[in-house]
């Protein structure tokens, strides 16, 4: 009996609209590739990310959180 070893984490990104969200768009425009388990929430500034948002993500089952801005 085999055990599925593939780890497919849920990664939540908080991206600043003016820089890293635009950067994520640029990655798309440039047709770069990255795994499909990264999901981005757009924020107006990384300073908008309340620590409670990060904790909530982990609480709800996220495996990783990326705050970038």
């Amino acid at each position: 009996m085999s055990i599925a070893t593939e780890f497919n984490p849920i990664i939540v990104g908080f991206n600043c609209n003016w820089c890293s969200y635009a950067g994520a768009d640029l990655a798309g425009v440039s047709r770069m590739k990255y795994p499909a388990n990264v999901r981005v929430i757009r924020v107006p500034c990384s300073g908008r990310v309340n620590p409670s948002f990060v904790l909530r993500a982990f609480q709800k089952g996220a495996d990783g959180v990326l705050v970038s801005g």
Binding site: A24, V29, Y34, P35, A36, V40
Partner: peptide, 16 residues
């Protein structure tokens, strides 16, 4: 945003 941050970057993984 399902173009720049989805189909354009994951065109090699249609299911994902």
């Amino acid at each position: 945003n399902i173009r720049e941050q989805c189909t354009w970057v994951h065109s090699d993984d249609k299911e994902g």
